[in-house]
């Protein structure tokens, strides 16, 4: 048990900085990108707009309810950057139905949505 507490302290002290999470937004693994986006939204809400692209791509994913979590964070994001969301909605003809619906729901949820 002598090693237990040093290990506890060691592992607890390993939280990632905002910069590490921002770097992880470009990870080749979409799951890691999604995790980074969720973490950044929680840990540094002022930098959450950086996660918009990743949240939108994650909306399409179904495992572990990733899509639902992404939609929830998108709704929080819509309160601060509704115009960016509207611009995405208008500009991207390749958007999936799930993404389009998530953005519309987010905008509605933020109280500024337009159908």
């Amino acid at each position: 048990m002598r090693l237990f507490f040093p290990l506890l302290v060691l592992t607890a002290a390993c939280a990632r900085s905002d910069e590490r999470w921002i770097e992880a937004l470009d990870d080749p693994d979409p799951f890691e990108r999604a995790l980074a986006a969720f973490a950044l939204c929680e840990q540094a809400p002022e930098r959450a707009p950086l996660t918009l692209g990743v949240l939108l791509e994650t909306v399409d994913r179904s495992e572990l309810e990733l899509g639902a979590h992404a939609a929830r964070h998108l709704e929080l994001l819509a309160r601060s950057i509704p115009d960016s969301l509207r611009a995405r909605l208008a500009a991207n003809p390749l958007m999936t139905e799930a993404r389009r619906r998530a953005i519309e729901d987010a905008l509605r949820g933020a109280g500024r949505g337009r159908r």
Binding site: L10, C14, R20, L35, A36, A39, Q43
Partner: peptide, 18 residues
């Protein structure tokens, strides 16, 4: 185990959201 648990715990903020 120590290395792997470190890798898990560094992601704890993201995992908590998930």
């Amino acid at each position: 185990a120590a290395s792997a648990s470190n890798a898990v715990l560094t992601r704890r903020v993201g995992l908590e959201a998930l």
